[in-house]
Nucleic acid binder design. Structure first.
Lengths: 342, 342
DNA sequence: GGCCGCAATCGAAACGCTTCGATTAATGCT
DNA sequence: AGCATTAATCGAAGCGTTTCGATTGCGGCC
């Protein structure tokens, strides 16, 4: 293994000079710099990560805790993860993958052993056991999602409450008077997962503001559940003409089920999805949707973390504004109420 | 930060004794051991990962390279990743996440800097630029998938060739005489991704052995493409009564499309999927399938790596035998050929 | 009873890097 | 011309472990 002293000897300088060339923390003459760089290249030198971490008290590794729970849409998680890794690399950091199975002890371990400099935690619950822990860990952390009591922590996410509202705004503007939200699986709500709850809150509040009839239903992420859901909905709310779907895997099955139930989309029934743009665009019928900006969230989370690592203050809460894109699944309400034969 | 000397002082022993208690590399009296352990607990001591890596020349971290390419089914990738992390933890290792974007330079970096002790590489191509690199890296590596020239490397995967064969075996036994394989998106084949190619090979060879008419078609992973595929297939092969689908996202759309085209499944047309059991079980019509044992592959990959880290020899190739589970989507061929009206 | 071997423990030398003062040479200022 | 300042570099002291030989008792053995 080639080490810094080898490079130093080869370039005719001291090891500290090599170190400063690498870190740029002190000025180095152009001539020396290029000589050192040439030696580094020639010898194929790579600083030893452990030695570096020991001496500098920085590992240049971030921990990323990814959720494994049921009811969480995997492709979205992956998009977060990838954007975190990509952005971390831009800042010369690597990413250590932790699963939720490891739980609090995992966080303690990687933080306590200085394996990582900072942490990113996904899938935050309203009352999350990791929250108090993160406060005491003494390492910068960014949460993707908002707990009930975020004081002292840095959180970022799509503004799901606003997302719920924006969907209702859109439907209300189109003249719909009776709207429904088809949400995440029940267990997601039972766990009090912030994003699901807040979407429902925003939806309900906005509907009330417009004086709309509204209803919220959790739904399992299977095609059968989707069909059953649609049946229930149409049965209990015959006037229903606007639906918001916040459950990625079943957006297509829901639309399909409404059609089978004799509702044309969008002529008889408007559907707004809260899902990645990609999914909405490539559906059989392109769907009006509020995007889940996974890449942006992951990216910004890392940027926030980097700021904190440099000792800078960062906003405690970052709520990304929802962006609704009109596509082919929403239309003004027709007067006829329930136009097609049943 | 509490360090090993603090623990040593607190327990009234030397630092090396504490180290030996932790590593178990020398015998320690029961009394001393428990005194040290108590001190560790009381002080909340955690060995510094960097210092440990420096002194021991082991980071206890594995690199996992995950694919980001199009045409790769994300949930399956995630299941690999999770099982890798879980098993690695059982062996007291952590997992560093690398994306394919980082490419060869990423491998060089993490291996060269001793950030990781060993590597797991997913989504291996037949002619993969990383293969020669891995041979020179001087670190144990396990590939999930098989390249063209695996000499000197350790590879593991489902035996996709056998999987293709097993599907044909099953269909042939049921009396089908004209079978088709609907595969991964074209780009996956263009990249010469081993698993796709081998499945197709196994399928074709087995069909020939039985004297069946067979056809292989790549297919984009969208519902539209699935429908188009089905139309083409039925058009070009009117006698088709058995289909193998090796493309997770579209198994349901394919079945659906056949039904719309007037083929009852399984009465008129048998479908075998190559996909995770979970997907096959929870489909509207439970599908006869060959499972993709992601968990087992990830698990075994880590076990192999651990063996190699301990200096043990391991088999160069591990091919997990395919397991076909009969469910409701396959049935004996009926005499009528194409029974339902068209 | 002296010797051997083993179990248990200690001390000190790495491990490869960063960083902090110190040193030297060159530059600017008056 | 002399002094102060700055740029460029060096040397050495850590950083917190692990590990290797050395040391100390102790029981068993002949």
């Amino acid at each position: 293994m080639v080490k810094i002293t080898d490079v130093a000897r080869h370039a005719g300088v001291s090891p500290s000079t090599v170190s400063y060339v690498l870190s740029g923390k002190r000025s180095i003459s152009a001539e020396t710099r290029s000589r050192v760089e040439e030696s580094i290249r020639e010898l194929g030198y790579r600083p030893h990560a452990g030695a570096r971490a020991l001496a500098s008290n920085r590992s240049n590794v971030l921990a990323l805790v990814i959720p494994l729970r049921t009811g969480i849409h995997v492709p979205v998680v992956m998009r977060f993860a990838v954007s975190v890794v990509t952005t971390a690399r831009r800042h010369d950091h690597d990413v250590l993958l932790l699963t939720q199975e490891e739980g609090e002890e995992g966080l303690r371990r990687v933080a306590g052993s200085s394996l990582v400099d900072a942490l990113i935690v996904m899938d935050v619950q309203m009352h999350d056991a990791r929250i108090p822990l993160l406060r005491t860990l003494g390492r910068p952390a960014v949460l993707i999602g908002f707990p009930e009591e975020p004081a002292g922590l840095t959180c970022i996410d799509l503004d799901f409450r606003a997302a719920g509202e924006v969907c209702v705004d859109h439907l209300a503007e189109l003249g719909h008077r009776c709207v429904g939200l088809i949400g995440s699986p029940p267990e997601v709500y039972e766990r009090e997962t912030g994003f699901a709850q807040r979407t429902a809150d925003g939806f309900t509040v906005a509907a009330r503001r417009y004086g709309l009839t509204s209803t919220v239903h959790p739904c399992e992420a299977t095609a059968e559940a989707a069909r059953a859901m649609v049946a229930t909905l149409l049965d209990e709310h015959p006037d229903l003409t606007g639906v918001v779907v916040h459950n990625e895997p079943i957006v297509a099955p829901i639309v399909e089920a409404f059609r089978r139930a004799g509702r044309r989309v969008p002529e008889d029934l408007s559907v707004v999805a809260i899902c990645p743009d990609e999914l909405a665009e490539h559906a059989e019928l392109p769907l009006t949707s509020v995007a889940i900006p996974a890449e942006e969230v992951g990216d910004r989370a890392v940027e926030l973390l980097m700021q904190k690592l440099e000792g800078n203050e960062v906003p405690a809460a970052t709520l990304l504004p929802p962006r609704l894109t009109r596509r082919a699944s929403t239309a003004p309400r027709t007067d006829t109420g329930r136009p097609t034969a049943n």
